[in-house]
Structure formats: C-alpha cells, structure tokens
Write a protein that binds this DNA or RNA. Sequence first.
RNA 1: GCUCCCUUCGUCUAGCGGUCUAGGACGCCGCCCUCUCACGGCGGAAACAGGGGUUCGAGUCCCCUAGGGAGCGCCA
Length: 479
Amino acid sequence: MSNPTEIVTRFAPSPTGFLHIGGARTALFNWLYARGRGGRMLLRIEDTDRARSTEEAIAAILDGLAWLGLDWDGDPVSQHARAERHREAVEQLLAAGKAYRCYASPEELAEMRETARKEGRPPRYDGRWRDRDPSEAPQGVNPAIRLKAPQEGETVIEDHVQGRVTWQNADLDDLILLRSDGNPTYMLAVVVDDHDMGVTHVVRGDDHLTNAARQTHIYQALGWNVPEWAHIPLIHGPDGAKLSKRHGALGVEAYRAMGYLPAAMRNYLVRLGWSHGDHEVMSTEQMLEWFDLDAIGRSAARFDFAKLENLNGIYMRQMPDDDLLVEFRRSLPYLEGGPAFEEKLDATNSARLAGAIPGLKERAKNLTELLANSQFLVDERPLSLDDKAARILDDAGRVTLAGLLPLLTGAAAWDAETLEGIVREFAEETGRKLGQVAQPLRAALTGRGTSPGIFDVLVVLGRDESLGRIGDQTGVPTD
RNA sequence: GCUCCCUUCGUCUAGCGGUCUAGGACGCCGCCCUCUCACGGCGGAAACAGGGGUUCGAGUCCCCUAGGGAGCGCCA
C-alpha cells in the first residue's frame, strides 16, 4: 500500500541504556529527512541481545524521543519478535547455496585471528567450511550458518554522506547469519527487517560504515534492493576523544534535568555536522525545509556545552512568556530543587512567578537558572541573605532603607512608574546615586545581589510583601 | 596490525578553481548602555595541519607525510 517513491527512514536503537546524545541526533536526522519530504519514520528496537536489553531502557528511549518532540509512524518493531522470519530468510539462502554450515570451534576461530594478525592480514574467517562436504561434519556439534560472500572483486557503496566507498571483497569474510544456538545475528536481522519494513534510507552512525558493505552482500544474496545509505559522523567529547560519560554522553533526560529546552536541543544537535549557510537559529519548520543528507559533513564534531547554553538562552528569550511559564512548570519535577519549589506555588506565588517571567527570562540560559533566580519569589520572611546581599545591607544600607520605607509606604499607586519616581526622587534629595538606593532595596527584597529590575520586583512582590521585606531589614516592623 | 573515513579561528561551521587582504556563530578581550546581573549595541584578537604536484590561478583537484576517528565477535 506504500507509495513506491515514498521515503521511509527508521531509528533503530538497542535498548541497553538511555537514549544518548548521539542517538538523539541520529533520530533527529532520520526524522527531519522523512518528515521534511512527506515520508515516514519507523522505530525498531534492536533487542536481539536478550541479556542486555531491558524494559526500562525501552521506556527511557521512547520517553527521550517524546521529550525531544520526535514522533514515529506505527508501533515500534521488536527485532527479537521477528526471529522466525530471520531464520526463514536463512533457510532460503541455504537452499540456494548462498550460505553454509560452519562447524569451526571458538578455539579454531581465535587461532585463525591470531595467525592472520601475525601475518599482517585482517583478522577474518578463512572459509574452511565453505566448500566442505556436509558428511565431514563432526558429531554432536551445532553449526553456525555463514553467508557465502563473494571472495573476489570489490563492493562499492554510494553513501549520501561518505560518498563512494570501496572495499576489496578479499578483505571481508563470511559473516555469521545464524548462531549455533539458532538465533539470528544483528547483521542478518537488520537486513531482513529493513527490507520487510520498506526502509528506503538507512541513516545511522558511521561506526556502521563497514557493516554497510557486509550487509550489501546479504541484500545481494537475498536478491533484494540495497537501500540508500547515509552514515553520519559520530559526536566527540570536548577533548576530541570519543564521547564518554564524563563528557556529554548523558541520556537526553539528563539534559532535561539540566533545564534545556527541547527546541533548543534540536537546533543545537542539527547544527552538529550540518549547516545551511550562516543560519544558526532556525525553527523546526525551517529545519524540515532545509535539511538534506547530502549537506552533512564528514568529520566528527565535538560537543560544546557553551554553545548549547547560548542557544538555549536565545530560545528562552524568544519564547512567549506564557509558553515559557508552561514549559518551566512542566519541567519542575525533573529539575533539582524543582519539586520543593513546586510545592510553594500557591495562588499568590504562582501569580508572582507569572508576573516575573519577563524579567527573569532575560537572565537565565536554562530552566535551572530560571528556577534559582525565581527562588526569591517564594521565599518566606524574614529572608536569609546571601553574602553579597549581606555586604550591601551594611549600616549605611539599612539607614538608606529606613529613610525610603515611609515614602514607599505612602505610595499613591503600586506600579513601576510611580515607584521609580519615588525612589529616584529620594535618591536625588538625599544626594545618593540611584545604585546606592537600588542595591540595598534589592538585597532586602530578594536576599541577593542580583535580580531583575528592582521596580519590577517591587510590583511583582506586591505592596504588603515588599514593605514587609524592607521592614525586616530596617528593624522597623510594619505588620 | 589490517580496512575504511576525517583534517578551515579554542569550538560549531561558510567556502563547491578566480568575487578569500578566508565569512558567520559560540567562547574570549575592550568599549557603550545601566539600579545589580543579564539582554542589547559597537569594536578586537583568533584558522585554510605540513610537503609536493596539476593549473594562467588552489582553502577549493591529485599524491605523500603527520595527526585524529571508526571498524575488524556465534555484541549490537
């Protein structure tokens, strides 16, 4: 029922851990390519390794994709569940004489690799059972099934990213299709599944590049069309080495916990290895329109937190206040200290938060910072002061506040314009610079040395709370 | 060891033989704005890995060297 020219991609993670950052980018590329061209993206869980696959990992991967805003068509396919079909394909190959039973023991195999290495040849199977008569099979040994791969000539793949890549068939060996316990190998399963699922474009990490050559042999033996390939470079850590846990190879949920926005994450990831002229910030719509496999670079990119941070800040500032507020509240359960903050969001504090968002979002590059900078809104009197605030509220600072308090108490209206007028006038008449008044005020109102504009803070906290907090620092009780 | 891939500012990249005295972004430095911190604005330092070719002309094409990466399993 599928359109013959329709593009079908797939993301095929193995559920042995979380969705790491490289996998997330691979998924994004698959998604962009398919969705940008009216095609479909499928999801397949490569769970043939039963010992290492877990339900939790599957859940984490689906959750990570959902958070990133990447969806797929149909139900996720379990590779393990298709083992019968994989065996069936091998029977077909056996019947056609394109595969054979191999009785070589693990010891023999190890020895083969050893000698090959010594002689400066690539370590590979020597094909000792390739043309041997079945009657020579040892008793009581279950054979593995190997592909009878071409031994001469060369195998060429035309890759959308890597270009034309050529291997001498002599350097490739007869890979195992079915293990001696009857279970299909990854190499076989991938080919059969991609074919059956109608995948037209295989977009994956370039650690699979050589696999493409060997898988091509399987496609050819089965008489199937070879899909289009796009092997994208891996992401490296800041030091240029393979991305490891101490770099950025965290699960995407870790980025959520650090307070990054999914949209910013997508934008950062898509620019790693791909670009469209000088465009740095682009909407998802633009990505879908511009993204192309042929424009992906061939060299590995390093993961740079500073740039992610900057992009995330841009997204936060660009986002409408209401949207950011929703996103922020939704992420609270995942942020450190978020749940405690959430508990304090009664009607009053929620209103304060909503009112403070415009001033807050200019000053935070991620939601974790936004949370930290929002803390003063829900803190209870009397506020505890951080070091900087304590220094500002020295004797002189307290005297200043004591002088200002009555004027604020008598404010005709509690809006930014009126309050600014009062404070500026007070500063002028008492021969102080505005900063000499604003800073003590800030310290008293927020308990910190930095905050959004002080007049906005006064308005957001409201008259009673503001006067109360100032009073707490002058020793003059107001309620 | 063998096979394959890669190499432009610290980082992500633009560049698809002449428009490159190499452009943008992050980061960094300086100045401005300013009630703090940010935002914003302006300016600055900063790269074609090295060597050979090809060509009238090379960051762009070819080769070599060096450096980096990936793969070489009855793992995926």
